[in-house]
Design a protein around this nucleic acid. Structure first.
Lengths: 216, 216
DNA sequence: GTCGTGGGTGAACGTCCGTGCACTCAATGT
DNA sequence: ACATTGAGTGCACGGACGTTCACCCACGAC
């Protein structure tokens, strides 16, 4: 027989809280936070509607928590990319291939979180939208400092770096969206990954040529 | 005094229909179609809720109409770009500058339509999402055939063209989103436009170098 | 001049919504 | 052993929702 530990009060509360967050993430998958009701979430979790208030003061504040959690996933991914970056520090081609591979992996494993970001970025409550926009901004800045560190990029100005990071981040956001839409069909996923690899290479080659021929 | 024409029955109906479409476009601006209620729309227009059904059978079918209208705007823009393209057929730099200028203009003039596409693309009802995705797909294909026509691009394979078009279209979608977020502050708009110009140039330079150094 | 069509009305329905409030009762701190 | 706390309950409310139906009555065809 399974030896069931008594489970403390705090543990119990945390378990319900998690259940609420998971239920919300799942329920708004085919609409949006702004169309999600407290009663739906409570119903899915198996508590009475008013019980919701023991954990969050509104759907919107729940949304803010989901933003935090989703970007925690995303930052974990970026950490992986950066680590690989340091270890291999090989040619651009290798960096690109591994980076895209890591993106595909993480999107597959954290589909719900990435979908949440992609969706609420444009459709969430204003506070949620702003929070996501700000986080993506931070990602761009981090990428810019990473790019500045790799050799052979001395010619880029700070402004060039910002512009390049913006382009790359948005291309990766688009790639993530496509991967989510592909919904696990492996052939389509590989096609999207291949597209992303080529795009990244094109962009990097273009950026490297950029300074040496700024005019036409 | 203003000579008020009697206004025929059909005209009257069309006027109400327009009012409904405009009201819906405006009302869902800070949420999404999926959070828009028939009663809100009717209230804003100044008709009774049931009157809505004389014009649309549901909010979703209204949404499909808005998709059509929004892409009519967008196609008008693409026509402008293409026309300029033929007339000038100058250097890439000129084409890029004019293209971005046209984008900025159209987003400013049709803010609501572009915002609608950007938002409902990821957050709308499934049917609306699919319709938008399909239309953007068509835009990519059109851009690919346009790119194939300009001289100096013979080295690109069909696949390269598809990948490049995808990259450019998504970069322009991101630019449009930023322009919308800038909400009419001219300094910020100019900054975004400058970023978009540089990104387009980088991408094109990269793509032109692409075939001649396919490896690392 | 008569009459049918159809855009718009107004009341009513059942359902879901967020929220307030008084309650229970097991885990906890003393 | 006892008192406290707080996660979860149950009920009730007022309001917004989509949709139904029977009803107007001006326009336009005849």
């Amino acid at each position: 027989m399974s030896e069931t530990r008594p489970e403390s009060r705090l543990e119990r509360k945390e378990r319900t809280r998690r259940a609420i967050l998971d239920a919300a993430l799942e329920l708004c998958e085919d609409s949006s936070l702004v169309a999600l009701s407290l009663r739906q979430v409570a119903g899915r979790v198996g508590i009475v509607p008013t019980g919701f208030y023991r954990h969050f003061e509104s759907i919107e504040s729940l949304g803010m928590t989901l933003v935090d959690e989703s970007f925690a996933s995303l930052r974990a991914m970026l950490r992986d990319v950066r680590r690989m970056d340091r270890d291999f520090s090989g040619s651009f081609a290798v960096i690109v291939d591994r980076s895209v591979e890591i993106l595909v992996e993480h999107v597959a494993r954290q589909r719900a979180h990435f979908a949440f970001i992609a969706r609420e970025r444009t459709a969430g409550p204003p506070a949620v939208r702003d929070a996501i926009r700000h986080e993506i901004d931070l990602c761009e800045r981090e990428l810019a400092t990473d790019l500045a560190r790799i050799p052979g990029t001395d010619a880029w100005s700070g402004e060039d770096l910002r512009i390049l990071s913006n382009l790359i981040v948005h291309a990766m956001v688009s790639t993530a969206e496509s991967l989510i839409a592909a919904a696990g069909r492996p052939a389509m996923e590989e096609q999207i990954a291949a597209t992303a690899r080529t795009q990244l290479r094109m962009v990097i080659i273009g950026a490297l040529q950029w300074r040496s021929r700024a005019g036409d």
